[in-house]
Amino acid sequence: MTVTTNIEPVKPKSALARLLAVVLAMASRPSGLVGLVLVAFHIVLAIVSPAIAPYDFKELSAQLILNSPSAEHWFGTDNLGRDVFTRTMLGGRQAILVTTISTVLAITWGGLLGVLLGLVGGRLDEFLMRLVDAFLSLPWILVLLLIVVMIGFTPGVLILTLGFFYGIPVIRMARAATHDVVALDFVTAARARGESRFTIVRKELLPNVLDVLLVEGAMRWSWMLLAFSSLSFLGFGVTPPTPDWGLMISDARSFMSFAPWAALAPVVALSSLIIGINLSADALAKAIGIDRAQQAPV
């Protein structure tokens, strides 16, 4: 018997092509486009800013204290006479680097543990989830402060701490997403075949919860940026004279009434990045949703 079919043989898209399709779908909504442009702008700027910054970020000048924006200093100067434009350009570098690595860390460990707990269930799951509840009830800023004060501020410590704490809510998300998948017959089929837990997690579960993890990761990223900047703002983060948005806002706070530009520039930079990430996360969720709907017959 020959099999005839009306469906054109469709090559499955490569991972790259699928990624491109998702990005295009995100960009097709105005809010998604704005989000993507903002995020891309900040990332590119963080990479190239040392090369293109017009001034030295630590160059002090007694003549230039709190000058208003001018042709030489677009965003004015701060209380030590440093160029705000240069410092704003460079101020996101450490924040973005630390939080990006922490996000990957959080999603990886939180996602894997969540998927595993969702699969095995039982007492271990029950116990660890109560632990997760306990952690989630802690006021995070205090915990972060405590750790930074105790161990000291280095990017490494901060990456690990942020990655650990922000992985905890991810466990919950990944576990819930896994519960939806675990009940399906293909997982039962894998268990009945005698596949190892590792194979089931890697082959059957992870591909199906990746969507949720991606969106969750984007959300966590923006929360982490806020947390990082808050630490700097409180004086427990980046050490001067390294430029950092949180630190710059903190420094400029006292002069806000007569030199608002010094605070405004880092505030706009930080909030535009966070808004950009949130808009992208939103668009990503919708784009992946559309992706699913597209596969349905009508």
């Binding site: 017959d185 039962t188 089929a189």
Partner: peptide, 10 residues
């Protein structure tokens, strides 16, 4: 299984 939609990983 009964339902191939559920028994094949999408």
């Amino acid at each position: 299984f009964q339902n191939p939609d559920a028994s094949l990983n999408p």
